[in-house]
Amino acid sequence: MLTLDQSIHDAIVAHARRDHPDEACGIVAGPAGSEQAVRHVPMENAERSTTFYRFDSMEQLRVWRELDDRDEDPVVIYHSHTATEAYPSRTDISLAMEPNAHYVLVSTRDPETAEFRSFRITDGEVVEEPVRIAGVDQHAVQTYMFGQTPTSVVYDCPAGN
């Protein structure tokens, strides 16, 4: 399960919309060893491509140094697909090098509704996980259905948990 603050979720979607039709990419950092994704860092897509992304190598070095200095991990690594579903492509799977990261994919193919899904990618194996969006009001929790019809986002408001 990936838990994200509503504001970070919205900032990622806004970044993906802004760079559309090119793919957008970035990370959400958090304290090392934790599952807390708290600091959004949009990254440059050095490829400036509609079908490929790669972090700019110098920006990546700077950001990764900063993570080291702050004792943080890239808890989330995200990118957008701009014409296809929010599911890891073969390229995504073969190039996934952070087994501890949550790989978030956003699809901007639908101008109205963004698909927002999260995956673990380890040794070529993809496992989807639920995304929980925590609002400003901690009691108002929305859970995204996942692995379902990709063009609609279904909100589920659990009463008990």
Binding site: E23, C25, I27, M43, E47, S49, T50, T51, F52, Y53, R54, F55, S57, Q60, L61, W64, I77, H79, H81, T82, A83, T84, P88, S89, R90, T91, D92, L95, A96, M97, E98
Partner: peptide, 14 residues
């Protein structure tokens, strides 16, 4: 010397 795996991917197949 610093070694970092590139963070890359995308919708393209291949």
């Amino acid at each position: 010397v610093t070694v970092l795996p590139a963070v890359a991917g995308g919708a393209s197949v291949g």
